[in-house]
Amino acid sequence: KELVLVLYDYQEKSPRELTVKKGDILTLLNSTNKDWWKIEVNGRQGFVPAAYLKKL
């Protein structure tokens, strides 16, 4: 499993997105899109802007 660090808080703006908090370490599911990465948070899957995340 690949992990990502959340660099900035992000509030979901659609049902396909997820809310994340700065400092969270989460599972990366897909990073093929350069702008939006798919991650998992508490069993939910969704997208967060790639600029808000850093691969560990």
Rank of each mutant, 00 (worst) to 15 (best):
K34L: 11
I25P: 00
Y8S: 11
W36V: 04
D9S: 08
R16V: 13
V4R: 00
F47L: 09
G46N: 01
G23H: 05
D24M: 13
I39M: 05
E17T: 08
K34V: 09
Y52R: 05
E12C: 11
V4G: 02
G46T: 03
N42W: 06
K21A: 11
L53C: 06
A50N: 03
E40T: 07
K13A: 14
D24V: 04
N30I: 07
L56M: 13
G46S: 03
Y8K: 15
G23N: 06
V48Y: 02
S14C: 09
K54A: 11
S31V: 07
S14A: 10
L5S: 04
F47H: 06
P15C: 10
V41R: 13
V6F: 01
R44P: 01
D24E: 12
P49E: 03
I25W: 03
V20H: 02
L28A: 03
W36T: 03
E17R: 07
F47A: 03
T32L: 10
Q45P: 07
L28T: 01
L3P: 03
Y52S: 10
K21Y: 14
D24W: 15
V20M: 05
K34D: 13
E12Y: 06
T19D: 04
G43F: 06
A50K: 07
K22L: 05
G46I: 06
K55Y: 10
Q45R: 10
V20A: 03
N42T: 07
T27I: 15
A51K: 13
E17P: 08
V20S: 01
T27G: 06
E12Q: 13
D24I: 03
N30H: 07
V48H: 01
E12V: 12
S14F: 08
K55W: 05
R16S: 13
D9C: 04
V20W: 01
Y8N: 10
W36M: 07
T32F: 10
K54M: 14
L7C: 06
T19S: 13
G46V: 06
N30P: 03
V20L: 06
K38E: 15
G43Y: 05
L18Y: 02
K22P: 03
Y8T: 09
E17D: 08
V6W: 01
D24A: 10
T27K: 10
L56T: 06
L7N: 02
K22I: 04
D24C: 07
L28M: 04
V6D: 00
Y52Q: 05
K22N: 04
E2L: 12
T19P: 04
A51C: 13
V20K: 00
K34Y: 08
Y10L: 01
K21E: 07
I39V: 14
T27V: 14
N42F: 08
Y10M: 01
E2P: 12
R16C: 15
W36D: 02
Y52P: 01
A50H: 03
V41K: 15
W36C: 07
Y52K: 06
L26G: 14
K38M: 15
V20D: 00
D24P: 00
